[in-house]
């Protein structure tokens, strides 16, 4: 078996990112779409930590903490919007969110 190199982690990260992209593109339930975005953020984090390990520099891990902060903020505001929208329209399907379309 070959030793585990950063390339392995990059491939894993890319694959997870693609899964997230497919989720965003194919699903219509906005909650699942937000979860796919979380998957993509996690893919980025894996990359950052792998490079932090490669260069033996903890800065990569600091960036991951910032990414997690942003993810928390995004989830809070995003879910707040979903709740407000659901109260008005009784749906979480993004195809029916056409209020701003012309």
């Amino acid at each position: 078996m070959t030793p585990i190199t950063p390339v392995h982690y990059m491939v894993l990260s890319a694959a997870l990112f693609i899964i997230g992209v497919i989720g965003v593109m194919t699903r219509r339930n906005i909650i699942v779409i937000l979860m796919s975005i979380e998957l993509m953020l996690n893919a980025v984090n894996i990359n950052l930590v792998a490079f932090s390990n490669l260069w033996q520099n903890a800065a990569g891990q600091v960036f991951v903490i910032f990414v997690i902060c942003v993810a928390a903020a995004e989830a809070a505001v995003g879910l707040g919007i979903i709740l407000a929208f659901y109260r008005n329209k009784e749906t979480v399907n993004i195809d029916e969110m056409t209020l701003m379309r012309w």
């Binding site: 891990q61 991951v64 903490i65 928390a72 809070a76």
Partner: peptide, 22 residues
């Protein structure tokens, strides 16, 4: 990858906080 602190933060914030919100 030797990032124990991040591993715990991942569980506390992501698994224990954000996903509960979902």
């Amino acid at each position: 990858l030797g990032a124990q602190f991040l591993a715990v933060i991942q569980v506390v914030v992501y698994a224990g906080g954000i996903v509960v919100l979902y």
